[in-house]
């Protein structure tokens, strides 16, 4: 049965319970995403106005326990090697909790910059997989740390520019197909660097609007299935280009709400599927950008509470829908 409201108390208790469900086989396999999972959970809680549902000190201690002293970055889990994605999540968590002073900013900055390749793209770790996702991780993290001035902006932008395709979208590497999640990382990265002129906004906004399907949900590429997470990737990109109204907000809201688990909480990729914290984060994030009543403003560029970004003086010129009163 489709829900007509966001079940905030249920989602809060779902996120709180995540640390307890260790019998779940999937849980065992996701250690490599544990830092990210905590960021997703915390961000969803912030969006729903329940930031304190996870204990602040425990969260900060966990983040610090993932410090990889050899590399100078954060792993996804204690004893895991540092990775740029978990490093960004760690910074986001600490900043949300106003605890960035616990980080050796010089070392993290060096770690991030060490992952840039001569082409300008970033690798995720010393293993060397490259992707515009990692460029975003680097740019966002450096910006949050106040170290963007250490970045070779031209080189970085040059790679992203080469990932732009004829349909206006961006791929994960040069030559790769446009994909809505890659559009987000590239557009948000360019927004942080004040280089949005690199985007063919008219073509891209149209391509993004075309992602909405008759059932209200959004897909990531033509002829693919809808998925709740694209609500965020696409709405955030459109917020940055100030075109959120191009999406049918009522239909997308109804679609996201229909993906809730009305018994145990959490949001899934599609109605009836198993929920997870990733889709719970990006479902609530999407609803926030759509002006869903009672939610807290989310900054679409950094995917963090807007108040945190504003306090750092990092707010860019984005525009979401006005928050509705009911």
């Amino acid at each position: 049965m489709a829900e007509s409201q966001l079940l905030i108390p249920l989602h809060v208790s779902y996120i709180k319970s995540l640390g307890d469900s260790k019998d779940d086989l999937a849980y065992h396999m996701t250690a490599h995403l544990r830092m990210n999972a905590i960021y997703w959970g915390l961000t969803a809680l912030c969006t729903m106005g329940h930031k304190d549902a996870l204990d602040r000190v425990e969260v900060i201690d966990f983040v610090l326990s993932c410090w990889d002293d050899e590399a100078g970055g954060f792993g996804a889990h204690p004893d895991h090697d540092a990775h740029i994605h978990s490093t960004l999540s760690a910074i986001q968590i600490l900043l949300t909790h106003d605890a960035l002073d616990k980080v050796d900013i010089d070392r993290v900055t060096r770690f991030i910059l060490s992952l840039q390749k001569p082409s300008g793209v970033f690798a995720g770790d010393e293993f060397g997989e490259t992707d515009t996702r990692f460029s975003y991780c680097a740019i966002s993290a450096l910006s949050l740390l106040g170290r963007l001035s250490d970045l070779d902006v031209e080189k970085t932008v040059s790679y992203i520019r080469q990932c732009r395709n004829f349909d206006g979208g961006f791929g994960n590497t040069i030559g790769a197909e446009s994909h809505a999640a890659q559009v987000f990382v590239c557009v948000a990265a360019l927004a942080i660097l004040d280089r949005l002129e690199e985007v063919d906004q008219q073509t891209l906004c149209w391509w993004l609007a075309e992602r909405q399907l008759p059932n209200g949900g959004l897909n990531g590429r033509p002829e693919k299935l809808e998925d709740v997470c694209y609500s965020f990737w696409i709405l955030s990109s459109l917020s940055i280009m100030r075109k959120v109204p191009w999406i049918d907000a009522d239909k997308l809201t109804a679609f996201i709400l229909s993906c809730q688990d009305p018994e145990s909480g959490g949001i899934a990729d599609r109605p009836g599927d198993a929920v997870d914290v990733f889709h719970t984060c990006f479902g609530t994030a999407g609803l926030s950008l759509l002006g869903y009543p009672g939610l807290v403003d989310l900054d679409p560029v950094y995917c963090m509470p807007a108040s945190v970004i504003e306090a750092k003086g990092l707010r860019k010129d984005w525009q979401a829908l006005h928050r509705r009163l009911s």
């Binding site: 995540l18 640390g19 260790k22 019998d23 086989l25 849980y27 065992h28 250690a31 544990r34 999972a37 905590i38 996870l54 204990d55 425990e58 969260v59 201690d61 966990f62 326990s65 889990h77 204690p78 004893d79």
Partner: peptide
């Protein structure tokens, strides 16, 4: 073993 003197927020119990 995975942990020595760490009491993480999200401990993992594997197969």
């Amino acid at each position: 073993p995975q942990y020595e003197n760490v009491d993480p927020l999200a401990p993992i119990f594997y197969t």
